[in-house]
Design a protein around this nucleic acid. Structure first.
Lengths: 205, 205, 205, 205
DNA sequence: CATGAATGAGGATTCATTCAT
DNA sequence: GATGAATGAATCCTCATTCAT
């Protein structure tokens, strides 16, 4: 490879990184602020300041605050999906993976309360409409697929996927919220007990 | 009793009624608007217009928008509690009441999507802090009491109340949301299947 | 008439006046500022300040800056029409009225340079489109009517009304501009000479 | 001549051309945008995009937006002057040239509505002040000279040049505007009738 | 009590201009 | 020279809140 080629590659990487990095910085600052001050109460100016960029810069990356919010949802979904579907757990038996994913999910939310806060606020805001066009079900792609496989593979009772997914995701969110709000500190053991409840109700003996 | 006294009583009743009625009108208009336009995007002026009162009138009933929101939360909790704990079901066996309350809850949310929308938005907004002082757990008073009784009476596994309540409330909200968002139409039968899952995981055989 | 009736009338008058007065104050402040700083370069905040009201107040009277501009055009047209069609000149012979109206027009613009400035800027801005729906020709209602009558009554050559009106209005604006810009001070006599030019070309001997 | 010299000449020509071409491209894109979106509503960024250059490039050619606008005015004046004073009409008798120039002017504006729009907006904007230092009268150099000559040569009544020029330029602009706005389609014949009006009022029999 | 005009601080967005590459 | 990302002051507009009637 010529030096020129390497040089260009390098420059492109730098650019790509800086773009991705700046977007990520904006996303993270938005998440923190939304968690603290709520969906409203987080002006663009503050997001910019916290992200270390100028107000106008935000508008190079997003055409409006709404677009920022909607793209942020995509960012969160990606982050969450990566965190809960660990490659090293792919080979686990279904029951164990079910438990693992549920616990990973709750653990991720507990470690990233700003994600939970945002996802909850987003899902009950009018913005959702904007995403429903492409994704009719929230975590359909990954979580629902995983649960569907459980049904077809005979590990899970033959219930509608929406029922199962409501139970799965509903308990994840409620558990994480209880923990974050300080009502109860869920330790590994407590989480296991909690998933056990729903796994017992869903599994095929 | 003199006529004057009756007249005064009458006027007072009228006033009390009209006060309660006006507050309710404000609450309902707020709920509808928040459902449609989100927590932000619902100015006081619009709430007033929709409720058929002047902007300034709102400030006779609530000192600020925040107070309106917080009182609205109380209003919702009362409405919901009344709707799910039906007096005619008081005598049912615990298992049946458990199922009934869960279904009543989901059904109420489905019939009043503006309530669900508000409760969800409220619970992930910074306003919650204001209510947590008095009520450390959301439906502690009623729902948690009911679930606690299940533990002490030996119908429910001896798990921490927070675990049980997370599962109960989490599935209620998730189920109602799935229905309202149009992902799945939960009929009576589907709801029964859904509660069955968590009841199976919680009950003592 | 009862006192109550008079009282109500009085209050209504006061209100109507204050509304009309406030609108007029906003209009006048807008005209002055647009004359001085141009169509852009006149922020709403400055208009408000100059008119002695708060920024937000402007938005009680006009839904947007654009609406303010468009209503301002209507205001100017009314003012101008009142100024150039003097009732005491109604009985003059056509030729003399023609001259009079032209001179009144130029004189009005010279005395109200902010009106000329606004009308010129407005007529070459994209806002015009908004008014053309209702008024296909600018001063059609009054000026064009007057000129049309000249044709039908046999005082003016049988030319298309658009030709005559272009000549009439074009010279009015150009003359006033020359005066205001300080290129030439048009005295009564000079104006008479100028109208004479176009009257000679238009009249029927 | 050495090759090096030719080479340099060539490069300089290329540069001059490309400079002139790029400036012209910027001018034309500015004119189009101003016509469509008004004096405000045409950001530098859009001008750049339409002209096929980068935003920053504009600032190689003009130190500021204001300078661009003012230079654009000069560009327009040159273009217009070239278009209305046709060399092949130099030998026509005065009366015919008068008519010709007037018609050329209107025709040019009709073919280049963006020029009329710009000239009108410019002449009623605060920018004019910047040009008035050097040119106290708008088309003094050319049009006024031509009209002055008419007076001295005895073809035109002995009126102040400002009066004559107001009538001449005022009717040109008004006529072109009426045509462009779609109020009336001025054909060659109609234009002739229109100039005739003012020529009749100005000429010496 | 009720009204709704008035307020003005605050927030979203734009855009002329700069500057590192 | 050319580029276009970055800047942040400036602008339009909103909306919670007040207060005279």
């Amino acid at each position: 490879m010529s030096l020129v080629f390497l040089f260009l590659c390098d420059r492109m990487n730098v650019r790509l990184n800086s773009l991705a990095e700046k977007k990520a910085a904006i996303f993270e600052s938005t998440l923190q602020l939304i968690k603290e001050y709520g969906f409203h109460g987080t002006p663009i100016s503050q997001i910019a300041q916290e992200a270390g960029v100028a107000t106008g810069t935000i508008y190079h990356y997003f055409t409006s605050k709404e677009e920022l919010i909607i793209e942020l949802f995509g960012y969160c979904r990606t982050q969450i999906t990566q965190a809960i579907f660990k490659s090293e757990e792919l080979s686990l038996p279904y029951a164990e993976r079910f438990v693992s994913i549920w616990i990973n999910f709750v653990t991720y939310y507990i470690r990233h309360p700003e994600m939970l806060s945002f996802m909850e606020q987003f899902s009950s805001s009018p913005y959702v409409k904007a995403v429903f066009c492409e994704n009719r079900i929230f975590f359909q792609d990954e979580v629902s697929n995983f649960l569907s496989k459980g049904v077809t593979s005979g590990h899970i009772k033959s219930l509608d996927i929406n029922i199962i997914s409501a139970v799965f995701l509903g308990t994840v969110a409620a558990t994480a919220k209880k923990h974050i709000n300080g009502h109860f500190t869920f330790k590994e053991e407590d989480m296991k007990k909690t998933v056990a409840i729903i796994w017992d109700g869903i599994k095929i003996y």
